[in-house]
Design a binder for these strands. Structure first.
Lengths: 342, 342
DNA sequence: CTGTTAGCGCGTTCAG
DNA sequence: CTGAACGCGCTAACAG
């Protein structure tokens, strides 16, 4: 009982304009030579019929989609907004169209290995984090389908270009900042184990400690999940087991938010009793009390870079294997300064 | 210099499995009767070749896309996250795919009146606010293309189904609440003039005043734009010209945030000197200081309703002309209570 | 239960 | 500069 729809085709336009379908196709695609007069007639016919070319048929016939796709695990994230802004901006500047598909962790059809966005309807794909698994990435890449990875490194053995932040560097500098502020017992509230951003951030924390001749105490590294609730619980326990910690560096701002709640529950103050730092500079961070000191991640720039790389890849067959975007320390009020002796 | 890609077609699968393309099509679409044994052979061939059907060709041949589209002015909004979650959830429950396109106010191609998402690649469209103009809506609808409007009423003369909040009711109740709290000089910080949600909210405010025998003072209704910066400026002026106002009801939480900043700049306190209320219950609102009293808009539910209506429309040809989702007062701390005499 | 075949709407040779 | 004709990959009758 599906509703049916009737739309004019290129043949209707051709008839109305008194030309052949080939000519209509030429004016639509601005290809080949057509008389100004003929162009006008065809355009008039198109307008009169409100004709729109069938994209499926075009892709089928031309083998190009002039569209790029974005596959993401979820669209429901605060930073997604910025990412998308960057991607869209670049895509449209290049006169492409963007289609977005969120997987939400749904598995692929195990019989028909199809993604809603693929070579059939896009000329290339931006793959955000682990929305598509290694095996499929491999297959797509083997077939020379243009791919750019965002916040995820390429499967072993492939050279799929990828774009990400200088996570390690940012975490290193924030940790160094905390040390410079006089803190020594600095805990790290980690992110999801499988998340590469989180891994690099933890690595930056560790290296900064070592570089400043401070011990890396495993008891001070607690697992988190880029989630405020999880962080809150974790920090409540941390505060009990390690009452002497002076600062907490959270792997992302959401976790920092959870940590803040936990610290407050424990009756301590930020930053007087304990310093707190985050990572991302998400929208919320400036509204926390106290405003959160954090590492700003250039999310919009990452979106722009990914789109630019992909379009370049589509056109030239080449892209930079790795694009690393610099991060920036944003010092607000949650870190304070430890007056006491180190 | 476009990269080229080669992929197996249904013919390759048919050859590999030793059957006809029709049979392959049958197992892919689970249509018609096929021997279990044949099914297995075909599936093996599909797996071996990593075959994926060409969506353009399928749509062309079957005249169905099993996909619904969402057209939105922008994807960069805090509440968009919730809206999308609702839509996606429902879409996937019905075994459809969702494709999203953000217009960002870009005009259509004036020669070829094409939308990136249309009857060629979707079975129906959810149109969010004014991302598509009346004329195009009319055309699509005339051709019986399934459409559901979200936060936007149908063009005059059409009966395109639409989904929205009980904006007027929510604003009415919030205004009544402010009055019950003892406030009399209640300003309204309006939204964009062309935004229907904003219009209804203002209407609710006005009606509540009238119902409580309070005068509607035009000097207390100031234009805003669902934007914190605009609101801040507007409220700074308002506070100077109308120093006796007791409460401000902002048409959305973003504006409330701007108002809060303006009030603070003027040296007044919320809620002791002036009460503040918002609308939407956006993510930020609970983090403001004081936490914002607001009207919770059921955004995710709106997304679910829109998707459900559209899918029903696609399948049965009918949908509810109007779906109104109820709002809910969220009383936090920004409104206080006026002890003084009314 | 399976194969043959005719389009779906369009872009693209190739003639003229 | 323009038209005829083929084929892109697939589904949907229709046969058998």
């Amino acid at each position: 009982m599906t509703t049916t729809t009737t739309h004019p085709t290129i043949a209707d336009v051709a008839r109305q304009a008194g030309v052949s379908t080939a000519t209509v196709s030429r004016v639509i695609n601005k290809s080949g030579n057509v008389t100004a007069d003929t162009i006008a007639r065809v355009q008039a016919a198109i307008a009169a019929l409100d004709y729109a070319p069938h994209s499926g048929a075009r892709i089928l016939a031309s083998r190009r989609a002039r569209t790029i796709g974005l596959i993401t695990p979820t669209i429901s994230d605060l930073f997604f907004t910025d990412l998308l802004r960057g991607i869209e901006q670049t895509v449209y500047e290049h006169d492409y169209t963007l289609l977005v598909h969120a997987t939400h962790g749904r598995p692929y059809d195990n019989i028909i290995p199809t993604l809603p966005l693929n070579h059939h309807n896009t000329d290339g794909l931006i793959i955000f984090t682990n929305s598509v698994d290694d095996a499929r990435l491999q297959k797509l890449h083997e077939r020379h389908f243009p791919l750019v990875l965002l916040h995820r490194s390429p499967p072993a053995g492939t050279d799929i270009p990828c774009v990400t932040f200088e996570n390690k560097d940012g975490a290193y500098r924030m940790t160094a900042h905390l040390i410079a502020c006089g803190y020594r017992r600095i805990a790290f509230l980690a992110g999801p184990a499988e998340n590469e951003d989180a891994q690099w951030r933890e690595q930056g924390y560790r290296e900064a400690l070592v570089a400043h001749v401070l011990a890396v105490d495993p008891a001070l590294i607690v697992p988190g999940d880029f989630n405020a609730g999880v962080a809150e619980t974790a920090v409540i326990h941390l505060l009990q087991s390690q009452p002497d910690i002076q600062a907490i560096f959270a792997a992302d701002d959401e976790s920092a938010r959870g940590a803040l709640a936990a610290i407050r529950q424990s009756g301590r103050r930020v930053p007087q009793d304990i310093a707190l730092a985050g990572f991302d500079d998400s929208l919320l961070s400036q509204y926390l009390h106290p405003p959160l000191t954090t590492v700003r991640a250039p999310i919009e720039a990452a979106g722009r870079a990914a789109a630019a790389q992909l379009i370049q890849l589509i056109h030239t067959g080449h892209a930079d294997p790795l694009t690393l975007l610099p991060t920036e320390l944003v010092i607000r009020e949650s870190c304070g300064w430890r007056e006491r002796n180190p």
